[in-house]
Design a protein around this nucleic acid. Structure first.
Lengths: 302, 302
DNA sequence: CCACGGATGAAACTTACTTTCACGGAGGCG
DNA sequence: CGCCTCCGTGAAAGTAAGTTTCATCCGTGG
């Protein structure tokens, strides 16, 4: 558990708002009220005094301080300053009404496209911003040295898991993805020291993924979690925690932005692993590309 | 105090640093020392407490307050916040070397992350920009009215296809995805007028996808292609062509940005379809979300 | 039903910020 | 030449903001 402790130290710059929204579910009700105010209008919050903000959130100053600590700040003044900085950096979204998070009932397709692209792109950028390079590095190292890598994810996260599996496989690393929990658990039971198990769950509450990591950990394997919520249950069973920064809107079950954010992280890990052994990875990619050549139409593409 | 009065009105936003340097000569010696510190490193000044800054400027807190008033602020906290905001606005452009597209051999993970995030986010944004809303609208309409939707994609595009299938399924539309060409062809043969077949291929040269669309078209189904290359072979067999805008870099076989771009398009179509029948889609999402509830850890994510 | 633990706000407390005021030195005037 | 005035200055008092402590409340599980 010690190694994950330092994860919190990352967030030195940027992504504070997203970071807060990520922590939101893990906060107590009163703190959530504060968090919502802050997220809704960071610039405004930065202008307020602690008493003022406490009143606005219908709570006490003490709770506001607790909130500050919960999101990793020393105290209120620091939060204020970080919020001011964050707010200043903010790019004005194309259409405030649309981008507010939700898609209005009467929206036409052009609006929908703008909204989605905005939140998708933001998720990717913000995820990268708050990603802890040190933790990534360790995960890359673990994967590079692993005899075997098991990846698990359900539903939408399953695609991501599967995508990562395919990528690793293509550069010659032994990786598995099992859509079925039972098979995954069986496989996890066969992992050992030096192997890696990775669980992907946006909410971090998917029982199946947690079980798989637990099993893998019990066998001595290194466990990695990829989730949007830094304090969700899955992080309890992970040696390394990688977080995404997606604020899903309505249709959240559609898991749109979160999925892109997860893929971004996967890309980073993939390139990291590939970069560790450029020659071998490059060779593997060329060979695999050749293999599918007969399935392509020759000639123009422009 | 009269001299400073008029200054306060202007400079509501931005240019604070410049403003201060302009006023510098008109300030008293002790205030100038404060001003110089502030101008030299606004971000650092924002971090300091008033006592701290006073000590650093070898003066008293009172002078710092006077300085605040001299430059038109209400008090120290306001100055702090404005400085933080100002400092944050100075965005340093991402490392050109990294962002150029390719990843240099000696790159560390932080660089890799920045590069990937940049190209991924760009792909998403640019794809949305060039996406033809009218074509999307027609595709959405076709899918909404379809008795059945067959989606085909190979390898990386297969994930996207599968993702789309799952999404449509979740909102109650009959959609299929077959990882196997043979099965896909068989299925395509059973399509008819009013049905939709969608082929996803980054290069637009994947034979399998083309064959599936050809088959579907021959049966009277509406065919849709999703590709990065607007004039690639697959577009010849498609009634509607949707394009992505991803410029893949090295490791292109890794299909990173292209995949995100494809997913963005899929998201747009999905939301478009869902928006056509909000009530039904919402209901379906709720029901499906409930269905997996037992597989989640209960309680808040602490 | 009780014991427990977490969440919460009131109040005590500390620190940061602001104001007041007295000192000292520069310049002006008698 | 000396006194008077005014401005800049920091010490110290005063006020407001932020922080800690602790008693209470409420839901949970034994």
């Amino acid at each position: 558990m010690v190694k994950t402790a330092k994860v919190s130290a990352s967030h030195e710059t940027g992504g504070l708002i997203v970071h807060i929204s990520g922590l939101l579910p893990s906060l107590s009700p009163a703190e959530q009220r504060v968090a919502r105010l802050v997220v809704a209008d960071p610039a405004d919050a930065a202008r307020r005094t602690i008493t003022d903000l406490a009143t606005a959130a219908e709570t006490s100053e003490a709770t506001v301080i607790r909130f500050c600590r919960s999101v990793g700040m020393d105290g209120y003044p620091q939060l204020r300053i970080r919020l001011a900085a964050e707010a200043a950096r903010r790019v004005e979204p194309p259409d405030a009404r649309v981008v507010g998070g939700d898609i209005p009932p009467g929206a036409d397709l052009a609006q929908i496209i703008a909204t989605i692209a905005f939140s998708d792109a933001r998720a990717v950028e913000e995820t990268a911003e708050q990603l802890d390079a040190a933790v990534c590095e360790q995960v890359v190292e673990a994967i590079s040295g692993a005899g075997r890598v098991d990846i698990y994810g359900a539903a939408a996260s399953g695609f991501v898991a599967s995508d990562f599996q395919q990528k690793l496989h293509r550069i010659g690393r032994t990786a598995f993805y099992f859509p079925d929990v039972h098979t995954a658990l069986t496989s996890a039971a066969l992992l050992g020291k030096g192997d890696v198990a990775m669980g992907i769950s946006h909410t971090g509450t998917t029982l199946d993924a947690i079980e798989v990591l637990e099993q893998a950990r019990a066998r001595g394997a290194t466990t990695v979690a990829l989730t949007n919520f830094p304090r969700s249950p899955i992080t309890d069973v992970a040696d390394y925690v990688l977080t995404t920064a997606a604020r899903e809107t309505t249709y959240r079950s559609g898991a749109m932005a979160s999925r892109l954010a997860q893929l971004t992280v996967v890309d980073c890990l993939f390139v990291g692993v590939a970069a560790r052994n450029r020659a071998r990875a490059k060779k593997a990619l060329e060979v695999t590309a050749e293999a599918v050549q007969p399935h392509r139409v020759k000639g123009r593409r422009a």
